[in-house]
Design a protein around this nucleic acid. Structure first.
Lengths: 209, 209
DNA sequence: ATATTGCGAGACTGAAAAGTTTCGAAAATG
DNA sequence: CATTTTCGAAACTTTTCAGTCTCGCAATAT
C-alpha cells in the first residue's frame, strides 16, 4: 500500500502541445475521469483499505490494464482522486463579525463532514495513519491550504475582536479539533448546535477585553 | 477482519473453580500473556492492519494453533489485548481548582498520547473506521469510562467555578478534541504548552461570571 | 499407568488481491 | 492503407495471509 509515486510516465505525455502530437490513439480523458470518480465513490463507500483495483476498473467500465498504464499503483490512483476531489473548498466567510464568521464556517464544515465527503475524510485520516505518503498528501492538499485560509480569516479580526497576541494555530485546533474528534470517534453526532456552542465557548476565551 | 467475537469457548473454562478442575493439561497462562503482549507491541509498531497471526505467534514464542485454540479469530486477539492494555487509566485529579484539575489532566493525557500508547490509539482509531465491532469496543472500553470519570470530575465544579448550565459533553470535546486532532492529523506536535493554553482558553469561555 | 487436554512447530489449504500479459478492436497520424 | 498507441476484457502469475490440521511431547487428573 505504501509506495513511491513515480511521476506520470513521461514518454506518453501529450496534453497541452497540439502542434506536436503523439502518433497513436490518444489517451481517453473520459476514461481517466471515470476511473478517478469510481475510486472516489468506492473510498466513500468502503474506506481506503477495502478497495481493489478490480472494483475500480469494473465500476469505471475500464480495464485494469488501463489503470496500470497511467498510474504506477493503486495508491497513486487514490491520491490523485483525492487531490481532485478536494480542490473546491468552502471559503472562509467575511461578514465583519468574528462570531458570525466562525459560526458560518463551522456550520459549513459540519455540513461537509456529515455529507458524502465525511466518509472520505474518515477513510482518509484512517488510512493516513499507516501510510506516510498519504499522510503527507493529506496535509499538503487539505490541511495546509484550508488552515491558511482560516488563519487569514481570523487574522482580520486580530486587535479588534481578537486579543492582539492570540495564538491562531491554537484557536483553529480548538475550533476544528472537536469536529474531527466526533467524526472519528463517533461518540456524539455533529450538529449545528455544536457549531454554535463551540464557537461561543472558544471565542469567549480569546476575545479582546 | 470483521467478525463476531464468540464468547471464550465455554467447554474449557477453568479459571476460578479449583475444586472442579478439568482433566488434561491446564491452559498456559504465561503463553496467554505473551500472546496479548506480542499483539500489543505489534499494533504499536505496525498498526492494526499490518499485523499477521504468524507475526504474533512468532514474537510470542507460541504456536498459531494455540492462538486459534483460545480466540476465534485475529480481531478477537487484538480486541482482548486492547481491553487489557487500557485497563489502567489516569484518574481525574481533584485539587479543588478547576483550572488545575484540567491542566493536570490534559498534561497527563498528552504524556499518554506522545508515548508508546499514542501509537496504539492512532492505530486503533484508524482501524475502527473500517470495523464496526472495533469501533464499538473502542467506545465501550476507552471512551465511555474515561469520559464518565472526566464528567464526574467536572461536575464537582458546577455552580462554583463552572456555569450552572454548562454542557459538559461539549466541554470535554473542546478539551480533548484538539489533542486527538493533532495526534491523528499530525499537523502540529503535542506539547505541554498546548495543554495549558487550551485549558485556559476553553475554561475562560465557560467559567462562572 | 492411562486417559485427557494443551503446547510448539510447521505443513497445508483456500481465498483475496496486486500487478502482468495477451488479445482483438478502436482511434489517431502520415 | 500502414503504423502506432490506446482501449476493454479476461486469463494469468505471484504473493500474502487467515485459518486448519497433524505430529510428538508436556502436564494434569484418575
Amino acid at each position: 500500500m505504501t509506495a513511491l509515486v513515480r511521476e506520470p510516465i513521461e514518454t506518453h505525455r501529450q496534453d497541452d502541445d497540439p502542434r506536436q502530437r503523439a502518433r497513436g490513439r490518444p489517451r481517453d480523458e473520459v476514461a481517466r475521469k471515470r476511473i478517478l470518480e469510481a475510486a472516489l465513490e468506492l473510498v466513500e463507500e468502503l474506506g481506503f483499505a477495502a478497495i481493489t483495483t478490480d472494483a475500480i476498473a469494473e465500476r469505471a467500465g475500464a480495464s485494469k490494464a488501463t489503470i496500470y498504464r497511467w498510474w504506477p499503483n493503486k495508491a497513486a490512483v487514490l491520491i490523485e482522486a483525492l487531490r481532485e476531489a478536494v480542490a473546491q473548498e468552502t471559503p472562509f466567510p467575511d461578514t465583519g463579525s468574528l462570531r458570525e464568521d466562525v459560526r458560518i464556517q463551522l456550520r459549513d464544515f459540519i455540513k461537509l463532514l456529515t455529507g458524502r465527503r465525511g466518509r472520505l475524510f474518515k477513510a482518509l485520516v484512517a488510512a493516513a495513519q499507516n501510510d506516510l505518503e498519504l499522510a503527507a498528501t493529506f496535509r499538503a492538499v487539505w490541511m495546509a491550504p484550508r488552515r491558511a485560509v482560516a488563519k487569514a480569516g481570523l487574522e482580520r479580526h486580530r486587535g479588534r475582536e481578537l486579543k492582539k497576541d492570540a495564538d491562531l494555530d491554537l484557536i483553529m485546533d480548538a475550533l476544528y479539533g472537536p469536529l474531527y474528534f466526533r467524526l472519528l470517534a463517533g461518540h456524539r453526532s455533529l450538529t449545528e448546535k455544536l457549531a454554535d456552542e463551540l464557537a461561543d465557548t472558544v471565542l469567549e476565551g480569546i476575545r479582546k477585553r
